[in-house]
């Protein structure tokens, strides 16, 4: 980053430290991790800015990616910019490793970057996610990359982009509370269940992307770096490790997370986020963990315990 301009002409093919010695495994004809090095540097500069101003949306020159908008074009560009050959990538979609989106993004980076992929939360160094935070607490050596459809938390209250900018600049967030007030007045509680607006580092109101509010408390002082990419809206923002993330609420109507009266039908967990699944057309339904890895690990442990005891 501190290279003096004009002294050395950067050699595109060897930049980024990956290509040295030609040991790079990737797709022939493509740069490592698909994006060219100039684009990666642009995104990394944006990321540095985003980390320096937690929760503040930084515009960036989002590129066309070989997947449609809404499928994680923002997240995939961040992942491509930060991933190295030694990284281990996990991708989840609504908590699951085995959905189309997760599988194809994993295979994309296996092909274009030759990196190892995993479904185990504990083994991953980079986790790209759509709409969930893994149940297993993350560590300092992990990075969580969120796919963000609408980065502007004020979007549905204030349609004017210029006005949104002013609201953020002056931290004049009273209007956010009008929305919360309406929720409580209509339903008796804060009815927002996902994409619950948060204040980052006591300054910027931020959209946490459409994660369930069950996950919102996990963002608070998380040891892992959290990066947010919105490809269509061309915005990147970040929450550095151990940063305060507080949900907006009223003094007398505090923030609360979802609770279930059931446990997971597969692993019996009560402390995980549960999806309701309709099993037939006569009203049958059951609840299972949304985090497929957490569920599988819990079942494996139960099986181990059982065989150990017998």
């Amino acid at each position: 980053m501190s290279r003096t301009p004009g002294l050395t002409v950067p050699n595109r093919s060897t930049e980024g430290g990956y290509a040295r010695g030609g040991a790079l495994k990737g797709l022939p004809g493509y740069n490592f991790a698909f994006l060219d090095e100039v684009t990666k540097r642009m995104i990394r500069r944006t990321l540095l800015k985003a980390v320096a101003i937690p929760g503040h949306q930084i515009p960036f020159a989002s590129r066309e990616m070989p997947l449609p908008y809404g499928w994680g074009t923002g997240g995939i560009q961040i992942t491509a910019s930060i991933i190295g050959p030694d990284d281990v990538l996990k991708v989840i979609d609504q908590g699951a490793d085995d959905t189309t989106n997760a599988v194809s993004i994993r295979s994309f980076f296996r092909k274009t970057a030759g990196v190892a992929t995993t479904t185990r939360t504990g083994e991953a160094t980079v986790i790209q996610t759509r709409h969930r935070i893994p149940e297993q607490p993350l560590r300092e050596d992990q990075i969580l990359v969120y796919q963000v459809p609408i980065p502007e938390p004020l979007r549905f209250i204030e349609p004017r982009e210029e006005e949104c900018g002013k609201v953020h600049a002056w931290a004049d967030y009273g209007i956010m509370y009008v929305k919360l007030y309406e929720d409580v007045a209509r339903t008796g509680r804060i009815a927002t269940t996902f994409d619950y607006p948060v204040v980052v580092n006591g300054r910027y109101v931020m959209s946490p992307s459409p994660i369930p509010k069950f996950d919102t408390p996990k963002m608070h002082r998380m040891p892992a770096l959290q990066l947010f990419g919105a490809g269509r809206e061309k915005r990147i923002y970040a929450v550095p490790p151990y940063t305060d993330v507080k949900p907006l609420d009223f003094e007398d109507v505090p923030f609360e997370i979802e609770r279930w009266s059931r446990c997971c039908a597969l692993c019996g967990a009560t402390e995980h986020y549960l999806d309701e699944i309709v099993t037939d057309d006569v009203g049958g339904r059951r609840f299972v963990c949304s985090d497929s890895d957490a569920c599988a690990q819990r079942r494996a442990k139960a099986a181990r315990d059982l065989s150990g005891n017998s």
Partner: peptide
């Protein structure tokens, strides 16, 4: 936005964060 939300808007902008008092 409901009448109550309209009336409370300026108070919320001025930092009132207590639902009961707003109402």
């Amino acid at each position: 936005v409901s009448a109550g939300g309209n009336i409370g808007e300026r108070l919320m902008a001025e930092g009132m964060r207590h639902y009961g008092r707003l109402r």
